[in-house]
């Protein structure tokens, strides 16, 4: 920005490790642009779901299907995992490799618990309740929106595992710091998407 007399490379010298190289700095901006585009992807799925919410055909409605208990369990697990991921980023800023790996592993475990709960929820709905994806437009929209989020979480789990391995091998360097920071951003982003699923799908479904 014009107000500052410092050049970008001077500013980088006083910034956290992941920003200290021009490449790291630019890649983090690029990752924000990716998250903006992913936001648009999810908005199309939200729009589709909200339009099809009432098209239940012979299948169950949202009110018949949803149960609040498992939904709250998923929500709390994901919120806490976002918190532990934030603690990981804090340890990264303290250049504490062991602390960072510890909190990333906790985040991974919570992510796996979340996935298990979601897979169980899909199983209960589609097999036990007899409401599979092809039964109604509402169910197609529901499984595709939540499935896309679940696929993102699955990808995030594999990504964080790879980063934990690199951190164990190399410690915190400008390159591994950038990777760990970006994976953290991605994890928080998935939590933001879930907040809107919780509100627009589950709570709305139980109100209308």
């Amino acid at each position: 920005m014009a107000a500052s007399s410092l050049s970008d490379s001077d500013k980088r010298k006083n910034m956290p490790l992941e920003y200290t190289t021009e490449e790291g700095d630019l890649r983090i901006v690029g990752f924000w642009i990716f998250m903006a585009s992913d936001l648009v992807l999810f908005s199309t799925l939200f729009a589709t779901y909200l339009i099809l919410q009432g098209s239940i055909g012979n299948g169950p409605s949202a009110k018949d299907l949803f149960e609040i208990g498992p939904v709250m369990a998923e929500t709390i697990v994901l919120l806490v995992s976002s918190f532990t991921c934030g603690l990981g980023t804090l340890e990264l800023r303290r250049h504490n490799t062991k602390g960072l790996i510890f909190w990333f592993v906790v985040t991974l475990i919570l992510g796996l618990i979340f996935l298990g709960l979601e897979i169980n929820e899909f199983y209960v709905y589609s097999v036990q309740e007899g409401a599979p994806i092809h039964l109604s437009a509402f169910l197609s929209g529901f499984y595709i929106l939540l499935g896309t989020h679940g696929a993102h979480v699955t990808l995030g789990i594999f990504w964080v595992i790879c980063i934990v391995i690199q951190l164990a091998q190399r410690g915190v360097t400008p390159v591994t710091a950038r990777k760990a920071f970006m994976a953290g951003l991605y994890w928080h982003f998935l939590d933001v998407v879930w907040i809107f699923i919780y509100t627009a799908v589950y709570l709305t479904g139980m109100v209308i």
């Binding site: 700095d25 901006v29 936001l39 648009v40 199309t44 939200f46 976002s82």
Partner: peptide, 29 residues
């Protein structure tokens, strides 16, 4: 509080990106 949104050598870049993403998402829904 978690995503360090205002960090970077020039955070206005990511702020514009996210603002545009939010605009398109809002317009879509």
């Amino acid at each position: 509080m978690f995503m360090h949104f205002t960090e970077g050598t020039d955070p206005s870049h990511q702020m514009m990106g996210i603002a545009f993403g939010l605009f398109v998402a809002f317009a879509m829904v």
